[in-house]
Simulated assay, not measured.
Amino acid sequence: MIRTATPADVPVIHALVRELADYEKLLHEARATEEQLREALFGERPAVHAHIAVDDTTGEPVGFALWFLTFSTWRGVHGIYLEDLYVRPTARGAGHGKALLAELAAICVERGYQRLEWAVLNWNAPTIAFYDSLGARPQDEWTTYRLTDQPLTDLGRTTRKPRPE
């Protein structure tokens, strides 16, 4: 079963984010707090959305998808960028990941969005095989770039002119 996340789900989303970061060997980079997630998902101006995969027999959350809207200037419509998709190892193979992606695809179809996009680590062969089995194809002619931490701060400080006080 897939359902839209509620504020009561923030602790489990936070735990799942940390589990995903650990799986990706990047737990040291997972700095988001429950309060930050609560504000992003349910604050005054939510910019992020989440769905929860629930085990049909136990009712326990076993996975999540966290996403936000994008916009294609070429197509002239929104799309969805899937920031995180994670299913606990004990629940894998039961269709939760596919159900989460199917839910996002249904939202795209219902709302006229024309893209559902995400990134996957190159070493994550099981996940890549799963995405391939759904008909997803890598965009290998594009390379993702990212600025964070000090390089982001340095660039932000050099490109803006001081504002008059």
Rank of each mutant, 00 (worst) to 15 (best):
E19V: 03
T6M: 06
G93D: 08
F71E: 02
L147V: 10
E19R: 13
K161G: 15
G63D: 01
V10N: 00
L66V: 14
N124W: 02
A106Y: 02
W67R: 00
P126K: 13
R18V: 08
D154F: 04
R45W: 04
Y23D: 09
V12E: 10
R31V: 13
G112Q: 11
S133E: 06
A53Q: 01
Y113L: 05
R146T: 11
T143S: 11
M1T: 13
A47N: 12
T159K: 07
L147G: 09
F42I: 00
K161L: 14
D154Y: 04
L82V: 07
P126D: 13
E141D: 15
P138V: 05
E35S: 15
P89R: 06
F130Y: 13
E44L: 10
E110Q: 14
R160G: 14
V48E: 13
T33E: 01
T144Q: 14
F71G: 01
A5G: 08
A21D: 07
R92E: 00
K161M: 10
I128E: 03
V77C: 13
A136P: 04
T158E: 14
T153Q: 09
R163S: 12
D84W: 00
E117Y: 05
Y86W: 04
T73W: 11
A105Y: 06
V54W: 02
L100H: 01
H28N: 12
A65K: 00
N124M: 04
E110W: 05
W123H: 08
I2H: 02
D154K: 09
L37V: 01
G93V: 09
A53G: 03
W142A: 09
L121K: 13
R137M: 10
T159Q: 08
P126L: 12
F42M: 01
H28I: 03
T73K: 13
T127D: 08
Q150L: 11
D55R: 04
P7E: 07
P164R: 11
L101R: 07
F42K: 00
K161F: 12
S133Q: 05
V120A: 15
C108D: 08
P126H: 13
G97V: 08
Y81N: 08
E35H: 14
E110F: 03
V17W: 11
K161V: 14
L101K: 08
G59W: 01
P164K: 10
I107T: 15
R38N: 12
T58V: 03
Q150Y: 07
R137E: 15
T4R: 14
P89Q: 07
F68N: 13
A40I: 04
N122L: 08
G59C: 03
A30Y: 00
L37D: 01
L152G: 06
K25T: 07
L41K: 03
Q114P: 02
P61R: 00
I128A: 02
V54H: 04
P151M: 12
Y23R: 07
H96I: 06
E117A: 11
